[in-house]
Every structure is written in structure tokens, then in C-alpha cells.
Computed example of a mutant assay.
Amino acid sequence: MRLSSLFFLVATMAALAGCTYKGVPEPQVSARDTEWLAQVPTSQEEPRYGRYLIEDPTGEAPGTIIVDTKQRFLYYVLDNKKAIRYGVAVGDEAYGWTGTSRIARKAEWPDWNPPAEMKARWPHVQFTKGGPGNPLGARALYLYEGNRDTLYRIHGTNEPEKIGLAVSSGCIRMRNIDVIDLYNRVSLNTKVIVR
């Protein structure tokens, strides 16, 4: 082994030894989830956008969801200064949204009815029944400011290869298995901060 290769290997091992990332077990899924998830396209996951238990970098109260649109991560804050970090796709620059909201509704395999603004931009988009081909994926968390629907969602995707990119019309997209995990952990009125 060449000296430069050995140095790189030792440096990489030392860097990884300092990591405080720990994988999070797969969530419980229903028989329907298993059947429909098998029909959704998959992609090679970039390791940094995986689901990890980490030291909480947000400083927010346990039970809060924080979306870091620049880094493309969603954090769900836990007790003991821990958080679960998920990779996400976010709104592209023209459609990005930031603010504080709450989860006012949760849905499994939701129907998708694109808003009028989206239909005006892309006339080909149309109502899609919930299921494997639906752009909202396996779960949706509906974000409200007070009692007003923001029309933004945290949801699954039928385009998992886009996780880590700024490609949506403002919604926060997650891998389907990740949005199922988050959905199982959160309740209505959970605070969501999109930065």
C-alpha cells in the first residue's frame, strides 16, 4: 500500500471515529405500505441524506421539527439534546418558503390536488389519487399558520433521486420510509420551523 493511500485511510478512519451519527431503525409499516412502497421507484441513497440519530444542532424544544433549507436536512428534536436528522428536497429558489407553522392534518397515502398557481404554471398537473404513483408519496403533514392552510406540506415522494436538491414548489419532500418514520413520531399541532 502506498504511503499516501495509507495516510488517507487512517485520516478517514479518524474522522469517522469522531462521528456521532447513529442509524435509526426502520419504522413499522402496514401491509398496504409494504405493497405500495415496493411499487415506488427507488434510488441509490447518498449516505449523508440517510436517517440518523445525532446531537441536536438546533437548540429548539423537544417535539419541534426544524427544516434547514440550505443544508437540505429536516430535524425532529428529541429529549436529551438529541435529534433525528433526515435528508429532504426543498423548494427551488423561486418557490422556497420559510416560516413557522404547525401540523394541522396528517394523511396516509393522500390524494394530491395541485393548487391553482401550480396548475397555471404546469397545465399538465392534475388530481392524483393516493397510491404509489402519487407525488405526495406515503404520508403528508399539512402545514398551517394559525388556522390558514399554507398549502405547503412535508410529504413523501415518487422521485427519491431528488432528495438533497432544491426542486419542489416549496414543499418539503422526504424518502417515503423517512416520512413514515416522522409521521409515526409527530402529533397534530407539532411546531414546524422552516429556515
Rank of each mutant, 00 (worst) to 15 (best):
N80Q: 13
I163G: 02
T69A: 13
M118C: 13
G96W: 10
G133A: 10
V67Q: 00
W109R: 04
T150G: 02
V194S: 02
A83P: 05
A116S: 15
L188E: 07
G99D: 05
N113K: 10
W36E: 08
S168C: 06
P57F: 03
Q126R: 12
A116N: 13
E35M: 12
R121H: 11
G156V: 04
V192A: 00
N184R: 10
E55P: 06
Q126F: 08
R85T: 02
S187F: 11
V24A: 00
E60K: 14
A120G: 09
F73C: 02
T98Q: 14
A116H: 15
Y86M: 01
G23W: 13
V67S: 00
T64E: 04
H155G: 02
L9G: 07
A14V: 11
L3N: 08
L74A: 03
E46V: 15
A11F: 15
R121P: 06
K162R: 11
V90T: 13
T190F: 01
D111H: 08
N134E: 05
K22Y: 10
E117G: 12
G87C: 02
N189T: 13
A61N: 10
D178S: 01
N158G: 06
Q71R: 15
F7S: 09
Q126Y: 11
I172S: 01
D79H: 12
R48H: 13
T34S: 09
G63K: 02
Y86S: 06
E108S: 14
G63Q: 05
G87F: 04
K22E: 13
